[in-house]
């Protein structure tokens, strides 16, 4: 069982790997089918309201979180994971409205990114101004 708790900065690679393994098919499908076309960009209200910053593009968010984790087989440093936390929690509100010409379920991939972060005690802290 994976219990999301605070690990005080230490990364538990095995937990990450078990989440990746459990969802391998879905992640692989998303990574294989994404043609890096950027047509998803305009469907993200955050992208539109944040000066068209590519870091808010739905595909960017899943490629650089769960995509990166999958390619690195879960072996990431605490710093890298914190960057991913910012990407999946602060650059996305999971409104689930992303468009994809191929119908890739981007929100659920970002959710997986969040799940990995949560399992390492990394999440959005709303009480930090």
């Amino acid at each position: 069982m994976s219990d999301n708790k605070n690990n005080n900065g230490k990364i538990d690679t095995r937990t990450i790997q078990s989440i990746l393994k459990e969802n391998k098919k879905q992640i692989k499908l998303g990574l294989t089918m994404c043609a890096h076309c950027s047509l998803c960009a305009e469907s993200c209200f955050l992208y539109m309201s944040r000066d068209l910053d590519p870091e808010y593009m739905p595909s960017y968010k899943f490629l650089h979180s769960i995509g990166k984790l999958y390619k690195k087989k879960g072996k990431v440093s605490a710093g890298q994971l914190e960057k991913m936390r910012d990407l999946v929690f602060c650059n996305c509100v999971l409104c689930t409205r992303c468009y994809c010409p191929f119908g890739i379920d981007i929100p659920s991939l970002i959710t997986l990114g969040r799940r990995v972060c949560r399992s390492q005690g990394l999440f959005r802290e709303y009480d930090k101004a």
Binding site: T32, M33, C34, A35, T96, R97, Y99, C100, P101, F102, G103, I104, D105
Partner: peptide, 20 residues
Amino acid sequence: SKFFHMIFFFFGRFLIINEY
């Protein structure tokens, strides 16, 4: 490879329930 979107496009858009 990514070329499979030749089939997957129809798959993902016509077969799977989605907003789009």
